[in-house]
Design a protein around this nucleic acid. Structure first.
Length: 98
DNA sequence: GAGATGACTGCTT
DNA sequence: CAAGCAGCCATCT
């Protein structure tokens, strides 16, 4: 297993600033993962220590089972959602193009 | 080793 | 705008 990749994913997620959100695809792309599903897997395993509430789907809606939870947490960070949908054009994290 | 599942995405109807 | 379908990788049964 690429422990390093796994670690990078966590690092990237931890790098997302408050008031901003990132999509699974973004995290996967930055981490060099071939599919966003792996991001979800990492979050399920080690997401407890990470701002997982800042990771949302490409359509601006959080993961189904955490939908309300994430929206509530995001709201406290200044990320307001409309009709369970977050305005990506407005809140999407601007990743470091290192 | 084959089949199903999941914190997903993009394209086509 | 909503629903369906295929591609994707790792893990579980």
């Amino acid at each position: 297993m690429d422990e390093q990749t796994h670690e990078m994913v966590r690092d990237i997620i931890a790098s997302v600033p408050p008031g901003k959100v990132a999509t699974y695809g973004d995290i996967a792309a930055i981490a060099g993962l071939a599919t966003p599903r792996l991001v979800g897997r990492v979050l399920r395993e080690d997401g407890f220590d990470l701002p997982w509430h800042r990771i949302i789907r490409a359509n601006g809606i959080p993961a189904t089972h955490l939908l309300t939870e994430q929206l509530e947490r995001l709201r406290t960070e200044g990320v307001l959602a409309e009709n369970y949908r977050i305005d990506l054009k407005r809140y999407r994290w601007d990743p470091p193009q290192d």
